[in-house]
Design a protein around this nucleic acid. Structure first.
Length: 303
DNA sequence: TTGGGATGTCGAT
DNA sequence: TCGACCTCCCAAT
């Protein structure tokens, strides 16, 4: 799932397996032939992720900017790369750490282009803070939310407000914050937004670690499935759970379109805004039906 | 086996 | 506002 956590993992793979090597670059499909020629034969210096954008930094000051979009994909391998099958926009090949060869194939991206450092920074300047980056500033996020009359469910999808959040994290972060997706940013306010940011930092880092999005606390998963691998059907509170009972209150989960994407939420648990000050970014880990909002706490994502 | 939807932009109209 | 991207997964047949 290419939300921010996936892109960070991909950048990490490039750093680990291809950085420091002189790479061959080509476009078997042909659509990126000119761009590939610009970096062909140069050393990959770094790989950087900001939100859903990835930048591969080559010697000579050139960057390859890649945005996977909905179904773009990188495939990695060692040894000789296979005969190109289908549309491979970009193929990178290097000697690999042991000289056996390492390769990376890019398919179906929304964006793939060679840019200068200045152009790369211009792209980054248009993005909001990234909860996965050390330079990600939750204050900037909170400021942008608190100044806006747009619905918070739309703001979370706006990459100029927060970079790296997609449709899954949007739905799940709103649920964990017990926040009505239709509440205006100005009504959510700075303090609640900061708490939501802190939860996004936790969720996205957990996503990087796992390689998938899991937002439920173990106590909110069915008995017998609270330890070990998290099943797909237990991973989320509301995302793609239309009509199924809310894990807290049993009310059927609703869906509606917001910013041209399907939004999922519990109309009872997310009926308004949580009290400021007592706000946990998350549901109680257990016995929620007998607890009040003020005594709930951050769910642990382990297990 | 077929078909529709999706984790997301991006550019043309 | 709509199609492109042209992949993957799952449900329906």
């Amino acid at each position: 799932m290419p939300e921010g956590h996936s892109i960070r993992r991909l950048a990490d793979v490039f750093v680990r397996d291809l950085a420091g090597q002189e790479l061959r670059a080509g476009s078997p499909q042909g659509r990126f032939a000119e761009g590939a020629a610009l970096v062909d034969g140069t050393v990959l210096r770094r790989a950087e992720a900001h939100g859903k954008q990835m930048f591969l930094g080559f010697a000579g000051g050139r960057w390859v900017r890649v945005h996977l979009g909905l179904y773009g994909k990188w495939v990695f391998g060692t040894g000789e790369p296979p005969e190109p099958r289908g549309a491979i926009r970009l193929r990178l090949q290097g000697p690999g750490a042991d000289g056996e060869g390492v390769w990376a194939d890019l398919r179906g991206p929304t964006a793939c282009e060679v840019v200068t450092t200045a152009e790369k920074e211009a792209v980054r300047a248009r993005l909001g803070p990234d909860p996965l980056r050390r330079d990600g500033d939750g204050g900037v996020f909170a400021e942008r939310v608190a100044r806006s009359r747009v619905a918070v469910g739309a703001l979370l999808m706006d990459q100029a407000v927060v970079a790296g959040v997609g449709n899954v994290y949007r739905a799940e972060a709103l649920f964990r914050a017990r926040t009505d997706p239709y509440a205006r940013g100005v009504d959510v306010g700075h303090e609640r937004a900061l708490t939501m940011w802190d939860d996004l930092v936790v969720l996205l880092h957990d996503g990087v670690r796992r390689g998938s999005i899991v937002t439920t606390a173990p106590a909110d998963r069915p008995e017998g499935h609270r330890r070990g691998r998290v099943r797909r059907e237990d991973a989320h509170y509301v995302y793609k759970r239309t009509g199924q009972p809310c894990r807290w209150c049993g009310t059927p989960v609703l869906t509606a379109e917001m910013v041209a994407r399907n939004l999922y939420w519990c109309p009872v648990c997310q009926a308004g805004l949580p009290e400021v000050g007592t706000l946990p970014p998350a549901p109680p880990a257990a016995s929620r039906r007998t607890r009040t909002a003020a005594t709930s706490r951050l769910p642990l994502l382990t297990g």
